[in-house]
């Protein structure tokens, strides 16, 4: 029982202090789970990140699920995941209701409008990282590598998918299945 409480508390903290999503959360989890509590080894943690990226779902949820599984089985996985998302969901709801309730205040209205723009900028930043990884397999690309490292197959799949999306607005799930199948066809 003790370990479950520790797991919950640890991931509640991790969830609360990870703003900005995605990769920002990794150092925080490593610090707590590997260095501070010693639940899993450094090598195992690297493997966990790899698996979290390879399976669907948000990185934070995947990582906490996996760590929870390793530490205390299914109960541990559920506890860690719930702990990790709890604060975020509650704070989101609070903020959303706040914006809804005070939408007629000029300050609140302007702040929400600004946040929409800024968060779009951040989404573009995430998209850029995804593109770098998809086309060149690295996030740190040098100018002279632009052509040598370029994955032409990925570029081709990207262009076809984008064209199809703009033209027919297909279902994202269909797109994901089709591009996965394309990967199987081209890369195997």
């Amino acid at each position: 029982m003790n370990i479950i409480i520790t797991l919950f508390w640890t991931f509640l903290k991790i969830g609360l202090f990870s703003i900005g999503g995605g990769y920002a959360i990794i150092p925080l989890i490593r610090e707590q789970v590997v260095n501070h509590l010693g639940w899993i080894s450094s090598k195992m943690f690297t493997d966990i990140i790899t698996i979290s990226q390879m399976t669907p779902g948000p990185l934070a949820v995947n990582t906490s699920t996996f760590v929870g599984l390793q530490v205390a089985g299914i109960a541990g996985a559920v506890t860690a995941t719930v702990g990790c998302v709890l604060c975020g969901v509650l704070i989101s709801l609070f903020l959303y209701r706040f914006f809804q309730k005070h939408g007629d205040s000029r300050y609140v209205f302007e702040v929400l409008k600004g946040l929409k723009s800024a968060s779009l900028g951040l989404i573009i930043s995430a998209a850029a990282t995804i593109i770098m990884l998809a086309f060149w397999g690295t996030e740190t690309l040098k100018a002279e590598q632009i052509f040598s490292l370029l994955n032409r197959t990925a570029l081709l799949i990207f262009c076809i998918v984008l064209f199809v999306l703009r033209k027919w607005k297909l279902n994202p799930i269909l797109i994901m299945t089709a591009s996965g199948a394309a990967g199987l066809l081209f890369y195997l």
Binding site: I130, A134, F135, L162, G180, A182, Y187
Partner: peptide, 30 residues
């Protein structure tokens, strides 16, 4: 999981999906 990480089929599907995700994100962002 060791088997999963090193599996060639999994890697190929994921590599294909990467390009799909990139296109979906650009479509949204536009």
């Amino acid at each position: 999981y060791e088997m999963f990480i090193t599996n060639a089929i999994v890697a190929a599907v994921l590599k294909g999906m990467e390009a799909g995700v990139a296109a979906l994100m650009i479509d949204l962002v536009v």
